[in-house]
Simulated assay, not measured.
Amino acid sequence: MNDRFQDFTMTTPLEPVPESKLDLMIRRHLQCGETVLWQGRPEVTSVNNLVSRSLAAIGIAFGVLLLVGLGQLIFPALALGSGSTLVPALVFISFGAIFFWLSWLERDANWRFAITDRRLLVIRGAKLFRYALPGEVRRFRIHGNIVYWNREDSPSSDGQRRSGRFIGFRGMCDPDAMKATL
């Protein structure tokens, strides 16, 4: 793990992170006088993200095969009436590229987490993705390697709530220790 990020155990007390070790992505989002007590990022690689990028790459590769005419040999039904595979190729390449870009934004290297003396911060890329003030957090829960304090559910077409995004620190090697620290 990068030496700017602190390893911790349940017995490690939170102390201010020295200014020289403060992550630039986190520093950018601090309020005047706010002190970082812990900073981190995902320690466990997200399998979902690897699968998403792999599927996107397969879609792009298949689109390129269609574009150069090899896809028609494998799947003749994809050719249009005129025998052209240009439209299906562009569809595969476009969807693959969009899917790859979206999964690239979600990659683990883009995420930073911080515990400050005022709030909990979740940062994605250059943006403050979510934060929580002490009075807003009722309790911490664990889902896999995620320690979360909120969950954003999205409605499904049948009116039921569908499990959405967990708001918290994801990719933790020891979620129990993180929960105890929080």
Results as ranks from 00 to 15, higher is better:
Ala126Val: 12
Asp174Ala: 08
Ser103Ala: 15
Val147Phe: 05
Phe92Ala: 01
Gly159Val: 02
Ile142Phe: 04
Glu43Thr: 08
Lys21Met: 14
Met1Tyr: 13
Leu30Met: 07
Tyr131Gln: 15
Met1Lys: 13
Leu14Thr: 07
Pro155Gly: 06
Ile146Cys: 13
Arg28Glu: 13
Thr85Val: 01
Lys127Trp: 08
Trp101Tyr: 12
Leu65Pro: 03
Ala114Met: 06
Phe129Pro: 02
Val137Leu: 10
Ala114Ser: 04
Asn48Gly: 14
Gly168Cys: 09
Ile167Met: 13
Val47Gly: 09
Leu70Gly: 12
Leu22Met: 11
Ala97Trp: 05
Gly159Lys: 04
Leu14Met: 10
Leu37Pro: 04
His29Pro: 05
Trp101Pro: 00
Glu136His: 10
Thr9Trp: 05
Val44Thr: 10
Phe75Asp: 00
Leu73Asp: 07
Ser103Trp: 04
Gln72Met: 00
Leu50Ile: 14
Trp149Asp: 07
Asp174Ile: 04
Leu30Asp: 07
Val137Arg: 12
Gly33Phe: 12
Asp7His: 12
Glu43Asp: 08
Leu128Tyr: 08
Tyr148Pro: 02
Ser52Met: 14
Thr9Asp: 08
Gln6Asp: 11
Ser46Cys: 11
Gly125Ile: 06
Arg28Asp: 11
Thr35Trp: 04
Ser84Lys: 01
Val64Trp: 09
Val68Thr: 14
Gln6Asn: 11
Arg41Tyr: 09
Gln160Ala: 12
His143Arg: 12
Phe166Val: 06
Phe62Ile: 04
Ala132Lys: 11
Met1Gly: 15
Ile74Ala: 10
Met172Val: 15
Phe113Asn: 05
Ala97Asn: 02
Gln39Val: 05
Gly144Ile: 03
Thr9Met: 05
Ala180Ser: 14
Leu90Lys: 01
Arg4Ala: 13
Ala97Phe: 07
Gln31Met: 14
Gln72Glu: 04
Leu90Gly: 03
Trp111Lys: 11
Ala180Gly: 11
Val147Trp: 08
Arg165Asp: 06
Leu120Trp: 14
Arg139Leu: 13
Leu30Lys: 07
His143Val: 09
Leu78Gly: 00
Lys21Cys: 11
Met1Pro: 13
Arg53Ala: 09
Leu67Lys: 06
Ala109Lys: 15
Asp3Asn: 15
Arg27Val: 04
Ile115Val: 10
Arg141Gln: 15
Phe166Gln: 10
Ile142Ser: 04
Ser154Leu: 10
Gly71Leu: 04
Arg124Leu: 14
Arg151Met: 14
Phe92Arg: 00
Arg139Asp: 14
Arg112Asn: 09
Arg165Tyr: 08
Ile74Asp: 00
Val91Ala: 02
Ser46Ala: 14
Ser54Lys: 13
Gly135Lys: 15
Phe129Ile: 03
Ala177Ile: 09
Ile115Asp: 02
Phe95Ser: 01
Gly135Ala: 15
Asp23Ile: 08
Ala97Leu: 11
Leu67Val: 03
Leu128Val: 05
Ala97Gln: 01
Gly59His: 02
Arg141Trp: 12
Pro175Arg: 02
Arg53Ile: 06
Leu102Gln: 12
Leu133Lys: 12
